[in-house]
Design a protein around this nucleic acid. Structure first.
Length: 674
DNA sequence: CCATAATTCTTTTTT
DNA sequence: AGAATTATGG
């Protein structure tokens, strides 16, 4: 077995894969076989006698998790007994247990389901998304009578989030200046309300796990014993709290394998801390450090262009990438009049290359912001080219889906007042803000009990009738969790609450909105197909698992991925440069390469952020295997008005001899084009 | 209390 | 330009 595991690897990769014990840090350039290295190492550990259940592999995205699971199970010849899409399942077949591979957040959620009782939460906690987080922040600021015009709630929220990431807990933080003292006050309030609601935000998942590990050494010890071999992917993207978490888990057996590339660090805005690479060398001085510099992915021209771009950054670990691949084509740079012409050019180029034998699945269009997708989509629709967008339109962010999810969340956790606030009068049932205030003043965290208490108080007849009916509904709903399967629960929720009729009536009143209505009902049906796979789980467990998974899921359409393979041609993939990390395509379009867009205008004043933009550009460029086509628009519509943009500095950083520059083929009056 | 009108953001990137 | 939030009136 060992031979076949090492067969297709180069010397450096073999070195990294073969070390069983002790800390290892691998710096791996783009296309240097990082995932291969990780997966083969897992297989090698197992063949060297390590028990699979003693292995933990941590990734950043669900996509990476899925990929790694598939490749490891292929290497091990492992058949998943349950649907592999069930990300939180812990698969086993017979006595063989599969190694645990998951994102930071999903692994912590799993730990917390078992251990969080120690911190005064219960195991059925709900997870807040960004919107929930922001509205709670706003609510607290209103309660504390803080002017949200002067102090942006989003800024406050970010500050709270960074305090958490730095492991500054509300009980130990009071702030050092006016602003941070104010934030500290909001923070304390925010956290105590979360706890009362039995809800965690994204940061809590990591931070509370760390808290438990620090305060309860016997718990930490159990997990250290369980996960004696730890692998961390995309190590450059870890934040301080994640670093501490990994360090706590790894410090006993010291079999810590971290792989990453400082040049591909693109999440510092989300508090990824590049110093974690340096800290690793400090905390594990015995660590082996291995550089993977051979690129298997791109042509020489593409790789050289990427290196020229990144060489303009001051801070980076020196490395020299090389490839045996051909020089390949020059990089196309095409300037268009506006974003519609740009999209038009991309469509034509796809047609040309498809005629040369490329399949649609070979193409990716990358851009800096989601907003850019629209013009390109329109062009593809007009041509009838199938495409898929990664990220962007969030299925689970649609109103009707969020409403139903709020019901589910409330059923799962009747302390969740945020979900309660969303649904108490959706569909309208005669309960106004006044009633809601009364309910929340009951000083009873369980809201069903709070409503029950209120129903005993005297009130105007119409109101008390509405409250009594509502109480019946809530009781009916809360029974569902223990008696029904997930899809049945959702069906029952839609029916019992009258939600479907509500949607129909809603669109009837807005006369011209037939499509929206159909779409919404379609979306609800879609939700039911997604949830089917949870029906095999135990009653209450299905709800819990489902809610956890969608809370931790970012790109939404992945649940429909099966369709892609059925079509031999596949689809063109559209996504942000961020979302493209870890992927590769024969042909990559890099759209909107203009000053102010990429690099984004908000980064131009800050040299640190500008370097991050450059790394992002480096990531985008190195996704391409054979062809890289850069497009720009001279005039671009932003916020409804037209902007004149210059060519991105990153494009100018590519040596001209690598570029085939296609000048704008237009000389007449340009104004008619925008 | 709810539907419509007026207004004010929004588009950086995501677990 | 479009979405989202707030103001207003029935």
């Amino acid at each position: 077995m060992t031979d076949s595991i090492l067969e297709k690897l180069n010397d450096k990769q073999i070195e990294a894969v073969k070390i069983v014990d002790g800390p290892v840090l691998v710096i791996s350039g783009p296309g240097s076989g990082k995932t291969r290295c990780l997966t083969h190492r897992i297989a090698h550990l197992i063949s060297a006698g390590v028990r699979p259940q003693n292995i933990l592999a941590v990734t950043f995205t669900n996509k990476a998790t899925e990929e790694m699971r598939n490749r490891v199970s292929h290497l091990l010849n492992f058949q998943f007994p349950i649907s592999p899409g069930l990300a939180s399942a812990w698969p086993r077949a017979g006595n063989f247990q599969f190694p645990l591979i998951g994102t930071f957040h999903s692994i912590c959620a799993r730990i917390l389901r078992n251990e969080i009782g120690r911190l005064g939460y219960s195991r059925s906690f709900n997870i807040f998304d960004d919107d929930d987080q922001l509205s709670l922040t706003k609510k607290i600021m209103a309660e504390l009578e803080i002017d949200t015009q002067r102090f942006n709630p989003r800024g406050v929220m970010n500050k709270i989030s960074s305090l958490k990431t730095e492991l500054k807990f509300p009980e130990n933080y009071d702030g050092e200046d006016f602003y941070s003292r104010m934030v500290a006050k909001i923070y304390k309030n925010y956290q105590s309300q979360l706890q009362k609601m039995n809800v965690l935000d994204f940061d809590d998942l990591i931070v509370l796990t760390v808290k438990i590990f620090k305060n309860y050494p016997e718990v930490l010890d159990r997990y250290q014993e369980m996960w004696r071999y730890i692998l961390v992917d995309e190590y450059q993207d870890t934040s301080y709290d994640q670093y501490v978490l990994i360090n706590l888990l790894g410090q006993k057996y010291r079999n810590l394998f971290c792989i990453g590339d400082d040049a591909q660090s693109i999440y510092q805005f989300r508090r990824a801390d590049i110093r974690n690479i340096l800290n690793f060398e400090r905390d594990y001085p015995e660590a082996k450090i291995i550089m993977l510099e051979q690129n298997y992915r791109s042509t020489k021209n593409i790789l050289n262009a990427a290196q020229e771009i990144i060489s303009n950054n001051k801070s980076q670990i020196p490395k020299s990438l090389w490839t045996d691949n051909n020089s390949g084509h020059k990089i196309t740079v095409k300037e268009s009049i506006n974003e519609r012409m740009e999209a038009q050019f991309i469509v034509e180029e796809v047609e040309d290359l498809a005629a040369q034998g490329y399949k649609l699945r070979d193409f990716a269009v990358l851009y800096r912001t989601h907003a850019q997708s629209r013009a390109i989509e329109e062009a593809f629709v007009a041509k009838g080219f199938p495409y898929q967008i990664i990220g962007g339109i969030k299925f689970y962010q649609r109103k009707e889906i969020k409403d139903i999810l709020a019901y589910l969340k409330f059923i799962n956790n009747p302390n969740d007042i945020a979900s309660f606030e969303r649904i108490y009068n959706i569909p309208p049932r005669g309960l106004g803000k006044g009633v809601f205030e009364k309910i929340s003043r009951q000083d009873e965290p369980n809201l069903i009990k709070a409503v029950a208490a209120l129903s005993k108080e005297p009130a105007p007849p119409r109101q008390s009738k509405a409250i009594a009916q509502f109480l019946n509904l809530l009781n009916d709903l809360s029974e569902l969790k223990t008696t029904k399967k997930l899809t049945d629960i959702i069906k029952a929720v839609v029916k019992k609450t009258g939600y479907e009729n509500y949607l129909i009536n809603l669109s009837l009143s807005k006369s011209d909105d037939h499509e929206t209505n159909d779409e919404r009902i379609e979306n609800l049906k879609e939700l039911l197909t997604v949830t089917k796979k949870y029906d095999s789980l135990e009653m209450g467990e299905g709800v819990e698992k489902f809610l956890e998974e969608i809370a931790l899921l970012q790109d939404t359409d992945k649940l429909k991925d099966g369709e892609i393979d059925q079509n031999k041609q596949g689809k063109i993939t559209l996504m942000t440069a961020h979302a493209s990390k870890g992927l590769e395509f024969p042909v990559v379009f890099l759209a909107g390469m203009e000053e102010g867009l990429f690099p984004h205008s908000r980064t131009l004043i800050n040299p640190v952020e500008l370097e991050e933009e450059r790394r992002l550009c480096y990531v985008a460029v190195t996704r391409a295997k054979e062809r890289l086509i850069i497009t720009t628009a001279k005039y671009r519509n932003i916020f409804g008005s037209t902007q004149v943009n210059l060519l991105s500095r990153f494009v100018n950083e590519i040596p001209t001899k690598l570029v085939d520059y296609q000048q704008m083929s237009w000389s007449d009056d340009e104004t008619i084009y925008y």
